[in-house]
Every structure is written in structure tokens, then in C-alpha cells.
Amino acid sequence: MPKLDVLVLTGRTIEQGKGKEMGKLSKVYLDDVVQCNIDPQDMKTLKLKQNTNVKVTTNFGSVVLKAVKSPRAPHPKMIFISYGPWASMISDPRTNGTGMPSLKGIPAEIEPAPNERVLSLQELVNQLKMEA
């Protein structure tokens, strides 16, 4: 399977913002926060089709997300994930003495994961409970 070293950016999208106000169980929210926005050129390199699953791994964890062609391209070797429980699974907890974790520009590796599933919110919460 092809792999690519990328930087992860997390942030707000209008869908995530709207979704969080409709409720964290709403379809609008859940559909948006599991998306991994990838540059179209990188999609080609990784031989990815729209909506296939990808695994993103950082030094702090890995998570399976849905690959989508970024509407805000070009941003080669940068992937964008909306703030939310899925993005938090791979973010950097180190705060460098400021209290602020590093939520943008986290080095990661991305690879296609056609045989892996995107976890549901309940499964993700259960995973945290198990790790506790």
C-alpha cells in the first residue's frame, strides 16, 4: 500500500460549526468530523477514491477516517480534519509550557485502509474508557 508523510491541520468548517449546534449526534456533525480532506494530487499518489477509508497515524495515535478530495486545494502533503473526537485521537498533547496542545501542523503518515472501519462515536468513547 502506498504511504505518504503529511502534516495534519485541524480546524473549523462551517458544517462542523453548524453540526455542533445541531447536536454532536446529528448527521451533519458526524459526517463532517470523520472526513480527511486531502489534496487531489496526493489522492492520486495514494491511489485513493473519494470516500474510501484512510488511516492517519501520528506519534500519538492513529485513526481511520474517510478520504475526501479537498475543496480548498492545493495544499500538497497537508491534510485537513475538522475539530472533533476523531481528530483528537491523533493530536499532540505536548503544550511546551503554554497549556496549549499542538493541534495544527502535526507530522503524520497517511495510508489507504480499505479494510478498516471508521469507528462510531460510541465506539470511540468506549475506546477511551478502555485505555483509561
Binding site: 500519538f60 473526537p85 483528537s88 493530536s91 498533547p93 496542545p101 493541534l103 477511551l128 485505555e131 483509561a132
Partner: peptide, 11 residues
Amino acid sequence: VAHFPRAASKN
């Protein structure tokens, strides 16, 4: 829990 890094949320 939705927004903190995993290392913090699990605790």
C-alpha cells in the same frame, strides 16, 4: 473529550 488530545481525555 471531543477536543482534548487522547492522552488527556482518557484520564
